[in-house]
Design a protein around this nucleic acid. Structure first.
Lengths: 154, 154
DNA sequence: CGGCAAAAGTGGCATATGCCACTAATTGAA
DNA sequence: TTCAATTAGTGGCATATGCCACTTTTGCCG
């Protein structure tokens, strides 16, 4: 094989994906820094924004993240007053989420910063390519992967 | 815009990437679970394995991760006896890393589990597509992104 | 209606990552 | 040689994510 690993050319799809995520994450984080939000928080606020007072579970599902992880990630946003939660009228187990007025303002502020980063990125890779990449990533994310074995009957 | 958000179809390249990373990460983590390693740890052990007693900084650069983050991530692996560090002979600031015999065994064990997951993934998306995706991700990771503004002269 | 299984979150614990402030070792220049 | 600037890591602090064990509500079945 010889050259099996220039800088980071791993064959592991997962490792490659994480590496790219760290790299791009830093870029977006830097761009959003002036707003005080991280890329993840921006994404979360945006998701809440485009949904209609979504339930925690709904958000978690959309973002493919663990429900408890979502709860944790939401805490600083609630603490900082950007988001608030309230119980669902019909099912008290359900907790819904919405942006506060402050949250809306902050989101608007962040969107401007995000746009610059997004634009920068698309200028570099091309809008077409970027769209294709996102499509590929969404496809991967939605793959119904599952290791065979374990779980025959039950 | 209108249909701006089916389940998770965000236009944010960063959000899309993270979402896919969470999804795929879980899959690989599940597959590696029997070894007790997480996908990240596996990737790290592998990187150390294919390098020649790399310095921390070298690893961090290859994986595009913060040096301190690498240090933190390395701790549990050192604690569990899979990795050990030692000072560079010529430059005592440099700390080099290598796998312990146990680490090698554990890596071998994990590689079997990883292979199954990797195989499963490639069967689903196709080896060709997977390779293209990795190439695209490596390209993104290595982009020299940087927000213009700030930093005129100095 | 009583009680048990399923659904939705919470909290605790552990790893993953980053940034910043600091310390130790080097290097380079006066 | 001596000291300032640079380089490589460390530690502390904060967010990002997951899993697991619980608690609270519902739903449903006998």
């Amino acid at each position: 094989m010889t050259e099996s690993h220039k800088p980071g050319f791993s064959r592991c799809n997962n490792a490659t994906l994480r590496r790219a995520a760290r790299s791009l994450g830093r870029f977006y984080d830097d761009a959003l820094a002036p707003s005080g939000l991280k890329g993840t928080q921006f994404g979360l606020l945006f998701q809440i924004h485009v949904s209609s007072e979504p339930a925690m579970g709904t958000i978690a599902e959309a973002l493919i993240m663990d429900l408890s992880a979502l709860g944790h990630t939401l805490k600083p946003l609630i603490r900082d007053g950007y988001v608030e939660t309230f119980a669902d009228k019909d099912d008290r187990r359900v907790k819904r989420v919405r942006l506060t007025p402050q949250g809306n303002v902050k989101l608007g502020e962040a969107i401007k910063l995000w746009s610059a980063a997004q634009q920068q990125f698309e200028d570099k890779v091309g809008a077409e390519q970027a769209a294709k990449l996102r499509a590929a990533l969404d496809a991967v994310a939605d793959l119904d992967l599952e290791m065979p074995a374990a779980a025959p009957s039950l």
